[in-house]
Design a protein around this nucleic acid. Structure first.
Length: 575
RNA sequence: CGGUCCGUAGCUCAGCUGGUAGAGCACCUGACUCUUAAUCAGGGUGUCGAGGGUUCGAGCCCCUCCGGACCGACCA
């Protein structure tokens, strides 16, 4: 009964599990398995002439990935976190006495690909020249009941790769086991954050944590996820940014704070967007955006070297070079450079004309700033492959950035664009509480015009600013986007372990529906498994049709149930 | 939300003009004490994503739905 719904291979593995237990072998032992080495260590340190002493007696553990059985000797491959190594088993080494069970039964019959075992033995080189471990003793550490995809490789060419994106994302464990390059991308992502953290700590900035559940969302233009706190009987939002909290800490007297923040935006999903994503935000007192540009260049250059050993990164068809200094354009310069149109002196009506000309869909809710941003997006962004700073944005788009020190209508803001996508966003932060209140009020006007993403007015934040915030430079840098570039990934899903997916919809089994017809629990499950998942479907059957189906299932899956008679089935269907 | 494509065995995929579900690997039975995509001899293990329709007959044609990928919209 318990095997119902399982494939042949899964049933066989469960039977092997029982057999192991019958032989007195615990397939899931509790005790620590002491290892002395790992696959990579052996391969690195092996020497034909002068084998290190400790490799003459090794203990290591991992997952069995292939087996090549040749009667009384076998080769297998063991995979651990660091890699793979070949194992050599001989019956008479595994079983010293007359009892050959450990080899003939346990190794040959009861182990499967995917099982986790520990082995003891010695390192050696085979006649064909492959460094291997000659196994003297093995221990089952975890029996695998679910078959793995079988991926074969020869001369660097991979056969039967486990490549279906849906399967891979839904079953990331499997993906990581059989696709080593997937693991590498995630290791690189961690190297990236380690590198960034090290850089920031080295400058003396303090890593902090601020609320993810916020009574009011702000710091970015986006739609939030909304939730509710029962005790407070209050609406809370998952943060879309942590900017407004980090600035309160600057007000509080920390001169450099940063946070690796999971942010949440309730918007579309595509290969550049996941509803939850990671951003690093940094605020440093007494600095401005020019200073911050230098910091970003220095930091990202270091990250490229730390993750890839070079400033030149292959991304798709392009080689992107993060070596300092990066190109810098003002936004107006960039638009003029790529489109030949100088919009720096234009009014809103003229901008509408330009926007239409370059192919932007214009609607009434768009202010001057939005129009300029759209024109930039259309003309420039995708053409900026090498890391480039775009500076001096229109004030309407940037309610938290300080007015430009010399250019009317602009703010001291920059973005770094790379491979056609924004990777960071930074300002000389607005610290004038009067101006900040005015900017929030302008946002409210935009909201009235229909801009769904206009910011809310945050009184608590304004109070903090009224206490007095030092002049401050702020930065937000997209960790997922940067990881995509550093790992040459085409989709954000390749740098998130568990990207958001729609849940698989499965028919739900409702036992009472069946027992109400006088069907036993066992047979109800069988009927459900046959694909008759509703009572309505069941009623449409005839006893003549159903009887052989059920008896067939019973026989095929070795359920050992008493087959129902035709009359019994007729009775179920008649109720 | 719109367009294009996809969903068949544990995995990768084939399946013609509608006519009894196929291959490789995996798996099962057997052989083999240095193999490595091991090999050799046998064995097909499947609600063809779900539901409905057309038809004598549907994996294939039509409709609806579910899930996914890509492009676009939206989203800094």
């Amino acid at each position: 009964m318990e095997y119902l719904g399982l494939s042949e291979q899964e049933i066989l593995r469960r039977e092997a599990l029982k057999e192991l237990i019958n032989l007195g072998i615990n397939p899931y032992p509790a005790a620590e398995y002491k290892t002395t080495t790992n696959t990579k260590d052996i391969l690195d340190r092996f020497s034909d002439d002068n084998l290190p002493e400790d490799l003459k007696n090794v203990s290591l553990a991992g997952r069995l990935m292939t087996r090549r059985i040749m009667g009384n000797a076998s080769f297998a491959e063991l995979q651990d976190e660091k890699g793979r190594i070949q194992l050599y088993f001989r019956r008479d080494d595994i079983c010293e006495g007359e009892d050959k069970t450990m080899y003939n039964q346990v190794f040959k019959k009861l182990l499967d690909i995917g099982d986790i075992i520990g082995v003891k033995g010695f390192a050696f080189r085979t006649q064909m020249g492959e460094i291997s471990v000659h196994v003297k003793e093995f221990t089952v550490l975890s029996k695998s009941l679910h078959p793995l995809p079988i991926v074969k490789e020869k001369d660097g060419k991979v056969y039967d790769a486990f490549s279906d994106p849906e399967q891979r994302y839904r079953n990331r464990s499997m993906d990581l086991i059989v696709n080593p390059q997937v693991k590498e991308a995630f290791i690189k992502r961690t190297m990236l954050t380690n590198s960034m953290r090290q850089f920031l700590n080295g400058k003396g900035y303090l890593e902090v944590e601020t609320p993810i559940l916020q009574p009011m969302y702000g710091g970015a233009a986006a739609r939030p996820f909304k939730t509710h706190h029962n005790t407070l009987d209050q609406t809370l939002y998952l943060r879309i940014a942590d900017e407004l909290y980090l600035k309160r800490l600057i007000v509080g007297g920390f001169d450099g704070v940063y946070e690796f923040a999971k942010d949440f935006r309730n918007e579309g999903m595509d290969r550049f967007h996941n509803p939850e994503f990671t951003q690093m935000e940094l605020y440093v007192a007494y600095k401005d955006y020019n200073w911050m540009m230098d910091l970003v260049e220095e930091m990202v250059e270091k990250i490229a070297i730390d993750t890839n050993g070079t400033t030149k990164i292959q991304v798709g068809e392009n080689i992107i070079d993060f070596k300092r200094p990066w190109k810098r354009y003002t936004m107006f310069e960039a638009i003029e450079h790529f489109s030949g149109i100088d919009i720096s002196q234009m009014d809103e009506q003229q901008l509408v004309e330009v926007a239409k000309k370059v192919g932007v869909e214009v609607d009434a809710s768009m202010g001057k700033g939005k129009l300029i941003d759209e024109i930039f997006g259309e003309c420039c962004e995708s053409k900026l492959i090498q890391p480039t700073f775009i500076t001096d944005y229109p004030i309407e788009m940037s309610p938290l950035a300080k007015k430009h020190r010399s250019k009317e209508g602009l703010v001291e803001r920059f973005e770094a664009v790379c491979n056609g996508k924004e990777i960071c966003n930074a300002y000389s932060e607005l610290n004038d509480p009067v101006d900040q209140r005015y900017r929030f009020e302008q946002q409210l006007l935009l909201a009235k015009r229909g801009d769904e993403e206009a910011m809310m007015l945050d009184e608590d934040f304004l109070t903090a600013m009224e206490i007095g915030m030092p002049p401050t430079a702020g930065l937000g840098i997209g960790i997922d986007r940067l990881s995509m570039i550093m790992t040459n990934s085409v989709s954000i899903q390749d740098v998130l372990f568990f990207p958001q997916m729609r849940p698989e919809k499965k028919d739900t089994f409702n036992l009472e529906d069946y027992t109400a017809l006088g069907i036993s629990e066992e047979w109800a499950k069988v009927i459900f498994k046959c694909g008759i998942t509703t009572v309505k479907q069941l009623k449409e059957m005839t006893p003549q049709k159903l009887h052989p189906v059920l008896c067939g299932m019973n026989k095929k899956h070795k359920l050992g149930l008493q087959n129902p008679t035709m009359d019994e089935i007729a009775e179920w269907l008649s109720k």
